[in-house]
C-alpha cells in the first residue's frame, strides 16, 4: 500500500495557509472599516483606512471568485 504523503502534506499546508491568510485578511479589513468610521467621527482623513479596507475585501472577493471557479471547472 502506498500512502501519498506528498499530496496529504500539500493539502495540509495549502489548507492551513489559505484559511489563516483569508481569515487574517478579512479581519484586517474589518479593523480598517472600523478605523474609517472612527476617523470620520473625529473628522480625520478616512483615505488610508478606506483604501486598506477595500484592498482587504477585494483580495477576499478574488479568493471567493477563484473558489467558485474551482467548483465550476
Amino acid at each position: 500500500m502506498n500512502i501519498d504523503w506528498v499530496a496529504l502534506g500539500t493539502v495540509f499546508g495549502v489548507s492551513v495557509a489559505v484559511t489563516v491568510g483569508l481569515v487574517g485578511l478579512f479581519t484586517v479589513g474589518i479593523v480598517a472599516l472600523s478605523r474609517q468610521e472612527g476617523a470620520a467621527a473625529t473628522g480625520n482623513s478616512v483615505l488610508a483606512a478606506r483604501t486598506g479596507a477595500v484592498a482587504c475585501f477585494g483580495l477576499c472577493l478574488a479568493a471567493v471568485t477563484y473558489g467558485i471557479y474551482l467548483i465550476v471547472a
Binding site: 501519498d4 493539502v11 495549502v14 489548507s15 489559505v18 484559511t19 481569515v23 474551482l70
Partner: peptide, 17 residues
C-alpha cells in the same frame, strides 16, 4: 472559511476529504 478552504484545496490537490 477553514471548511471551504480545506474542501476546495483537498479536492483539487488529489486528496479529497
Amino acid at each position: 472559511t477553514g471548511a471551504a478552504a480545506v474542501i476546495l484545496s483537498s479536492s483539487h490537490l488529489g486528496f479529497a476529504l
